[in-house]
Simulated assay, not measured.
Amino acid sequence: MVTVVMSVYNGTRYLTEQLDSLRLQTASPDRVLIADDCSTDGSFDLIGEYIEKHGLDNWTIYKNSSNFGWRMSFKRLLDLASIDDGIVFPCDQDDIWKPDKIAVMSSIIEKDPSIDVLCCAVEPFYENGGKKVTVYGAVDNSRPLDDLEAPVFDSKFMSVRRPGCSYAVKSDFIREIMPYWQDDFAHDGMLWRFSLLKGTLRLLNQPLIRFRRHDSNATEMRHIDKKSRVAEIGMCLRFSKALEEYCIDNPGDYRASSECIEHFETVLDARLHLLEGGLKLNNLGTILKYRKYHLSNRSLLGDLKALITSGDSK
């Protein structure tokens, strides 16, 4: 069973191209589940008419009862899709899949039972003034296209290197991690970090998606104000606790991973105290000691700037 899940919100601008690329796959999905997150631009009707026009009896579109936001919407879709054994492909509303994406990725997973999550590379393209950004998951010219990389759980375990639309996921793995999934956790972060923890994540260097960058992508903006940074740190702490719970509940040798998680939480606590309590040397010392566990080298500078501009520096 191959299932594609797509969460849609005000996507009429690019939806038809994405729907065409799904319909014209060389290996058709067994079903496509689409959740419209209370769009106001006619996306729901567009998709319904597309399904009817092409006689896509195995495609389903429904409207969320309220605007859940893309994180919760994808969580609900993946939970629904995982009821049946098989492979699940998360799909964004504004990219273009290459015709053999499902065929290539399904074949790799079916041949290797050690894989829970497989991520292809992406081919970014820009239009309508889309801002040039660093795209994680673009082709690595130093590696063969068919090379499979097995990333290691290390100090950068929170850094997600491929977008969720590039994933193919075993449904039993989704069921396995669902008890640890909170509503505000992004699906790419959940699938990436838990499979990284298990050692069941693989990266394919072949670009199987044209990854559209434009002026309204739903990527997260990095806010500089103190309140938003405190909230982000709190979310990261909850996520690391979820990983800890998984290590406790499931058999396996997670000693090295648990040490990484512990150090990551130590630096997060120090950053939180710095932001909430003002500039303290002991907090700075801890942050510098465990600086390799920062999501980026700019984290400390961002915290200090947020602290100073808030007027709470002491």
Rank of each mutant, 00 (worst) to 15 (best):
I34G: 06
P124Y: 00
R13S: 14
V267E: 11
D147P: 07
E17K: 03
A35E: 07
H294A: 04
L275R: 00
H54V: 03
Y180A: 02
A218C: 04
M158A: 08
D249G: 08
F239R: 10
G11Q: 09
D37V: 02
W192K: 10
K111I: 03
G189T: 13
D154I: 01
D92I: 05
K63F: 05
G302I: 09
F153A: 02
P144Q: 00
S171T: 15
S106N: 13
R13I: 09
E245A: 15
S114V: 06
T16E: 03
P144C: 04
I96D: 05
C91I: 08
R23S: 06
V32H: 08
T60D: 07
I83W: 05
L78M: 15
E220T: 12
S106Q: 15
L19P: 08
R271K: 14
D154M: 00
R298H: 14
G48W: 09
F239T: 00
I51F: 06
I34P: 10
S195H: 03
D140R: 11
D184I: 07
D184H: 12
K132H: 14
Y180C: 04
L272Y: 13
I83D: 06
E232H: 10
S28M: 11
F157T: 00
I115F: 11
N297S: 05
N141G: 13
L19K: 03
D269P: 04
D172Q: 03
E149K: 12
H214F: 13
V5Y: 05
D45S: 13
M1P: 04
L46N: 08
D85N: 06
P207T: 10
I261E: 15
E232I: 04
R210S: 14
F74T: 10
F157E: 04
M72A: 05
G311M: 04
A270V: 02
L148Y: 12
I233T: 00
K131P: 10
I96C: 06
N297W: 07
G129I: 12
S195I: 01
N205L: 01
E49G: 10
Y293T: 01
A231Q: 15
K98V: 14
G234K: 15
W70K: 13
K131V: 05
E220P: 06
L118N: 13
V230L: 15
S7D: 05
S159Q: 11
K75V: 05
S155I: 01
H263A: 02
F89G: 01
C165D: 07
I47V: 15
